[in-house]
Nucleic acid binder design. Structure first.
Lengths: 158, 158
DNA sequence: TATTGTTATACTCTATAACTATA
DNA sequence: TATAGTTATAGAGTATAACAATA
């Protein structure tokens, strides 16, 4: 990354301008996650899914009959924010809202046949994506990474 | 997490409802980063900084005189999105925009005395935050984590 | 022609308050 | 009273197109 204005040369040209920030795991994680998120979004675009709609679909298929509040808790998404996600998946015919007979306030979420089919397709896409981004790492490194992220989350949730 | 509606018991009560997603590092990273980001935001609130404004301030102090386009590149933020960040820091008297004599299109960003002071204060806050979230990990685990995140980002950036 | 900073705009994710209908 | 789902709303991060001034 050479510069065309060397007269006003500054540190940005010689060392990483974000050197101090690179010392923070939080910053490194943000940069990493942004890249992962953008790459995954590109790959899920063909299925018209985003990380969040993909996640919701997976949980509904894996836990047919769960309520919206349970889905929200599982994904750590505020209930209001989940409404549009469920709306979208329902309008696309991937999941259904059905009244819970024992509690008329609640809706049980169940996948449709199309939802289950997309589940398998999308899972393959995301599995391939994972394999790609983890290609440079050993199983042991991935294990350590996963454990470390869990530990950090626990500390941050305090 | 016991349920009050065991009649309609489902998997969400017994195993983690997001079990499949937990198998993906991308999902684990998202959940972890959300927690870290929220916690850091709380701690930076006292200084009226966010992760992004903090990051911009750090880079400007460390690289006095760099241009907005260089700051954008350093932080991997699109140029239009950086304008409001720089505006905010400038209005608060933390940095200054000064014309570059050799290129009248460009602005050089330099920190004020107040900016340099906040730099040190904020750095301490974030360093303490880092220590907190990394408390459960050994230096070796943190090293592996950092290397793994860098490797993943590189793969994702393709 | 290309680049710097900017404006306008849109999409997504996240967060909170308040409503309704039930429990 | 409390809870489930919803509506409305706002803040924040991210992305692209297009413009004026300048190189």
């Amino acid at each position: 990354m050479t510069s065309h204005h060397d007269i006003t040369a500054n540190a940005a040209d010689t060392v990483q301008a974000d050197h101090t920030l690179r010392g923070f795991i939080g910053y490194v994680m943000k940069r990493c996650f942004n890249s992962v998120q953008a790459d995954l979004a590109r790959e899920l675009e063909a299925l018209d899914l985003r990380m969040l709609t993909f996640s919701a679909l997976i949980v509904v298929v894996d836990n047919a009959g769960l309520r919206q509040s349970e889905l929200a808790q599982a994904l750590s998404v505020e209930r209001p924010n989940l409404v549009v996600i469920v709306d979208e998946l329902e309008k696309r015919g991937l999941i259904k809202r059905t009244q819970v007979p024992t509690d008329r306030r609640a809706y049980a979420l169940t996948p449709t046949a199309a939802g289950k089919e997309l589940y398998h397709t999308a899972l393959k896409v995301v599995q391939d994506h994972e394999a790609k981004i983890l290609a440079g790492l050993t199983d042991e490194q991935v294990r350590t990474l996963r454990d470390a992220l869990k530990s950090i989350q626990k500390s941050a949730d305090g």
